[in-house]
Amino acid sequence: MPLSELIHLRQLLHQNPETSGEEINTAEKILSFFAKLKPDQTIQNLGGNGIAFIFKGKYPGSRSLFRAELDALPIQENKGLSYRSQTEGKAHLCGHDGHMTIACGLGEKLAAQRPENGEVVLLFQPAEETGEGARRILDDPKFRQINPDFAFALHNLPGFPLHQVVIRKGTFAAGSTGLTIFLTGKTSHAAHPDAGINPSQAIAQLIQILPKLPEKLKRFALVTVIHVEIGSLAFGTSAGKGSLSLTIRAFDQNDLESLIDLITEESIRITSSEKLGCEFSFVEKFAVSKNDPKAAYIAEEVMKGLNLNLWEKPEPFRWSEDFGLFSQSCPSYLFGLGAGENCPQLHEPTYDFPDELIETGVRIFEGIARKLNG
Results as ranks from 00 to 15, higher is better:
48 G>W: 05
183 L>M: 10
142 K>I: 02
252 D>T: 06
208 Q>F: 12
187 T>E: 10
90 K>H: 14
44 Q>H: 11
22 E>V: 08
175 G>A: 00
153 A>G: 05
150 F>C: 13
74 P>C: 08
127 A>F: 01
19 T>E: 12
296 A>N: 09
287 A>Y: 09
194 D>S: 13
68 A>E: 05
119 E>P: 07
116 E>V: 05
82 S>Y: 13
35 A>D: 12
133 G>T: 06
222 L>D: 15
221 A>T: 09
295 A>D: 06
16 N>K: 15
208 Q>G: 07
3 L>I: 15
311 W>Q: 15
321 E>C: 00
299 A>Y: 12
110 L>F: 04
361 G>F: 07
151 A>P: 10
352 D>G: 03
199 P>E: 02
330 C>V: 10
139 D>P: 01
196 G>C: 08
111 A>N: 02
19 T>C: 14
361 G>P: 03
195 A>M: 13
359 E>Q: 15
335 F>N: 01
257 E>I: 04
163 H>P: 01
91 A>K: 03
203 I>F: 04
341 E>C: 14
265 E>W: 10
48 G>R: 07
223 V>H: 12
368 I>N: 05
55 F>S: 09
88 E>G: 09
170 G>Y: 12
99 H>A: 05
322 D>E: 06
173 A>L: 06
127 A>W: 01
227 H>Y: 11
4 S>K: 15
72 A>F: 10
17 P>H: 15
372 L>K: 07
214 P>R: 09
180 T>S: 01
123 L>T: 06
181 I>W: 06
289 S>W: 02
229 E>T: 15
81 L>W: 05
299 A>L: 13
244 L>C: 08
370 R>H: 00
239 A>Q: 08
151 A>C: 14
232 S>C: 12
58 K>Y: 12
172 F>A: 13
334 L>N: 02
70 L>T: 02
176 S>E: 07
41 Q>D: 13
152 F>D: 04
360 T>W: 01
228 V>P: 05
281 S>M: 10
244 L>W: 05
314 P>S: 09
186 K>E: 15
37 L>Y: 02
215 E>W: 09
323 F>E: 07
282 F>W: 07
316 P>K: 08
157 L>P: 02
31 L>A: 10
201 Q>P: 03
90 K>M: 10
156 N>G: 06
60 P>V: 14
277 G>A: 00
73 L>V: 09
153 A>L: 07
139 D>S: 10
349 P>V: 11
99 H>P: 04
324 G>N: 01
357 L>I: 00
297 Y>V: 11
318 R>E: 11
